[in-house]
Simulated scan of single mutants.
Amino acid sequence: MKIIDLSTPLFSGMTVYPRDPEVKIKVVHTYEKETWELRQLTMGTHTGTHVDAFSHMDEGAETIDQIPLNNFFGPTEVVKKNQKWPKEKGLLFIEEIGLAELDKILSVKPKFIGGMITEELERALLKNKIVTYTGLVNLECLPKQETFIFYGLPLKIKSGDGSPVRAIAIIED
């Protein structure tokens, strides 16, 4: 079994979406003073590698804590626009995909989508109750047209519009 980390590291001053909160990670307690270490995190819910709740772009839709956990993991494939896509699996795109592909996406009923998707497509997917992942890295390390297991579990943020995740792919040898 091989595990591939698909998450970007979080650090103070990292690049964020325009007008989103700046990332600040501050050491609050130290081993020398308190005999333990603790950091304070300040950031938006859509920082780094993250998942979007249906409520992110649709007022009144389900929030991150209302979406069942099984929506955030499962069999997944890396796909391209011009190939046949598997049904009812997660889809990850290593090339930009946009609203023009919405009908094809809806026809295969993916569990979730991530990778290079436009904001317009993201909005349409969330309206159609398809979870979206943004900020995934190392997608080029994943097998193409082979199934692997993806996990991108959110923090259980009450009424959350999204959450940072530690996304991983598990590939069987």
Rank of each mutant, 00 (worst) to 15 (best):
L10S: 00
R39D: 10
K33I: 14
G48I: 07
L139C: 09
T134S: 12
K127D: 12
P9F: 12
I130Y: 00
T42C: 03
L102V: 00
F150I: 03
M14E: 01
R123C: 11
G98Q: 09
H46M: 13
G13F: 08
E95C: 08
T49W: 06
N128M: 08
T42N: 11
S107Y: 01
L91P: 05
I64E: 09
T118C: 09
E88Y: 00
V131N: 01
L102D: 00
G13N: 07
W36S: 15
S159Q: 08
T30V: 15
V79W: 00
P75V: 04
V27T: 06
V131S: 01
I171N: 09
V78F: 00
E59R: 06
I67F: 04
T63S: 11
G152K: 03
E122Q: 09
D173F: 03
L102Q: 00
G13K: 10
I4K: 02
T35G: 15
Q66C: 05
P68D: 10
S7N: 03
S7Q: 04
V28L: 14
T147V: 14
F112H: 04
H46P: 07
G98C: 03
P68R: 06
T147M: 05
T76G: 07
M57Y: 11
D58R: 07
E146Y: 15
L106E: 05
G162I: 01
G90Q: 08
P9I: 11
K2N: 13
T30R: 15
L155I: 12
K87A: 11
I168N: 04
D58W: 09
T45S: 13
A53C: 02
G60P: 07
M57K: 13
F73T: 11
I105H: 01
G13L: 05
E140V: 09
G115N: 03
G74V: 01
K33L: 15
D65V: 07
L41K: 08
F11A: 08
K80C: 06
Q83L: 12
E172G: 15
M116L: 15
E32L: 14
P143M: 06
E77H: 08
T15Q: 10
Y31C: 01
E119P: 12
P21V: 04
I67Y: 01
H46L: 11
Q145W: 09
L41I: 12
I117K: 06
L92E: 02
P18A: 08
D20I: 05
A100H: 15
E22M: 12
C141A: 15
T147R: 13
I94C: 11
G60A: 01
A167F: 03
S12L: 00
I94P: 00
R39Q: 13
E95W: 10
K144D: 06
